[in-house]
Design a protein around this nucleic acid. Structure first.
Lengths: 322, 322
DNA sequence: TAAAAATACTCCATAGGTATTTTAT
DNA sequence: ATAAAATACCTATGGAGTATTTTTA
């Protein structure tokens, strides 16, 4: 039968002191090293011996040497202390922002077109911090942020969720794009009414882009039903390709279509009576505390968006286009 | 530059509480499990957060969830606690004598002829304890015992060393042996004086057997010089073989030569005026504390020697040969 | 409103200090 | 005689308890 014996216990502080005593072979010397009085070390050792339930040191006049039990505890204690040191170091690195990981989320446009560049610049400042970006639509990102899976999120629409805190970042302009051979290619502009009957490609439900479009139409007394929806696709790239292929027209972020428009693969058409400006928001869960690295990234994102005010997001757009 | 930041520190008790809170997602539940009041756990967490220098938990109304920093600490803390548990278990096993090692020493005769059997019996009682025996001459064993390399020793002579404690064990008889073709083979007995001029094989200096012979001769007013030493050999087996080969005669433990005498390879000759009885002693360093396993072995050896009193070590020898 | 955490407070064990005694070289 | 550890004694802090308030679902 395994004897009920004694429940062995100890704290890290005890081990620190004990190990130093074993290493120096002297209580007085060890006391100096750990910055304690000799008597305190003696007492700490007595307490540890009480906790462990056995003598750990043989007092041989000038020297002290571990007993067999002390020897076992010393060898194991060294490992334990080394492991503790590593844990502390890891925490310190993380808190000091010299190492660690920040998990954030980005909805399609920010995640694919904006964050890569920002993260590149952030990484130069904090080479030890790795930023991982989960890309999804606005709804996904909001859900994960509230669920605690992500510390930060950048989304293209406010998604009234009471735990979230929103900080405005960059501005974005949505534009109407049509295939390159479309009859509207030479029109100066169109109006909302012209969209009636026009084959239209939509993003999926939950998309910020789609949400914004819905809101803009509402201001004109219309809903998405007003559009002739020919497809609902789960990413802006898919929508863009569909328009290129001539499936229909769509409204997309200028950032997603700028290259294709310049190459003549798509045409941008101005919709004069529809306000399609929007802003991206940095979201956090109000109830949660940001880790230092996440806080640094938060600061960086806000600062970056502040600077970017000088640079319009599209040729005509932007409030400070001087 | 690695920021001066905050020195992270903690104790195992903190980790235990913190980990339970993370696992249950609740301070109240964790408090129950670790048998503390809810308020105590709250305070311990606050203290830990102060020590680590950051928030570790997000308080979300009903639930609490670790922050990123808390997550890192939790994962590392689990490992650390598991390691501590192993250390405690190892100590408990050792102290409870269900596992561990005892290092002991034996001089030639006890080490080679007596301890193997005793250890076999001891092992049946404590299957988890391994006993390692270092064999050397009496001097070696005494040195290692005083040096702390061995917890126990069994030697064939007292070696007045003030730190040692001696406990008498089995009795032993030294006998004079001669080669099988020796002229004394048919003598009833001889006396000390007959040894003069007789080629004699000695053990090395430091041997207990040799020491005892020296003492016995001293009582007759003689020294080792009285003998005609033809060789000094470092083990009793070597001496025995030398006598078999006819190099000379010698005085050896009966235990070492009994088999050879029975097989007729050696002849035993009685020396009527020389007292060659001796006792083996169990030695320990008075200043050191015996580990529980060593203490168990000590008890076992003493008990075994007590029982063995009934069994004479040689045909005529032994105080209780009834 | 009910459940959970934080806060306020009290109490005591433990860690730490200084001064002195004991012990072993 | 000296160096080191143990002991005695004191203080402060941290850990744990109870009672109460605050918060949030």
């Amino acid at each position: 039968m395994p004897s009920p014996a004694h429940r062995v216990d100890f704290e890290l502080r005890h081990l620190e002191i004990f190990c130093k005593v074993v290493e120096t072979g002297s209580i007085t010397k060890a006391a100096h090293i750990v910055h304690l009085a000799q008597a305190s070390v003696s007492e700490r050792l007595a307490r540890l011996e009480e906790l462990v339930g056995t003598r750990l040191l043989d007092r041989l006049g000038r020297k002290v040497e571990p007993t067999r039990a002390g020897d076992i505890l010393y060898k194991a204690g060294r490992d334990l202390l080394e492991k503790k040191r590593q844990v502390c170091e890891q925490m310190e690195d993380f808190l000091g922002m010299s190492r660690g990981e920040v998990r954030m989320g980005g909805s399609t446009i920010p995640g694919e077109y904006l964050l890569p560049g920002v993260i590149r610049r952030f990484h130069q400042l904090h080479p030890g911090i790795s930023v991982s970006v989960t890309i999804g639509d606005t709804r996904d990102v909001v859900e994960r942020a509230v669920g605690g899976l992500l510390e930060l999120g950048v989304v293209g629409a406010r998604h009234e969720e009471k735990h979230l805190h929103y900080t405005p970042l960059w501005q974005d302009d949505l534009v109407l794009v049509v295939p390159s051979g479309h009859p509207w290619r030479d029109r100066e502009s169109i109006c909302v009414q012209d969209l009636e009957g026009q084959p239209f490609v939509l993003r999926e439900e939950g998309s910020g882009t789609r949400g914004l479009l819905e809101q803009a139409l509402q201001k004109k007394g219309k809903s998405l039903e007003f559009l002739t929806t020919v497809a609902q696709l789960g990413s802006s790239t898919a929508v863009k390709e569909a328009v290129k292929q001539g499936l229909g027209v769509s409204i997309l972020s200028w950032r997603a279509v700028a290259d294709a428009v310049r190459l003549g693969l798509l045409c941008r058409v101005h919709v004069k009576d529809l306000c399609l400006a929007r802003r991206f928001y940095l979201i956090t869960d109000k109830r949660r505390v940001l880790s230092p690295p996440a806080r640094a990234l938060w600061d960086f994102l806000v600062a970056d968006a502040g600077n970017a005010l000088c640079v319009p997001s599209s040729p005509e757009g932007g409030p400070a286009a001087f």
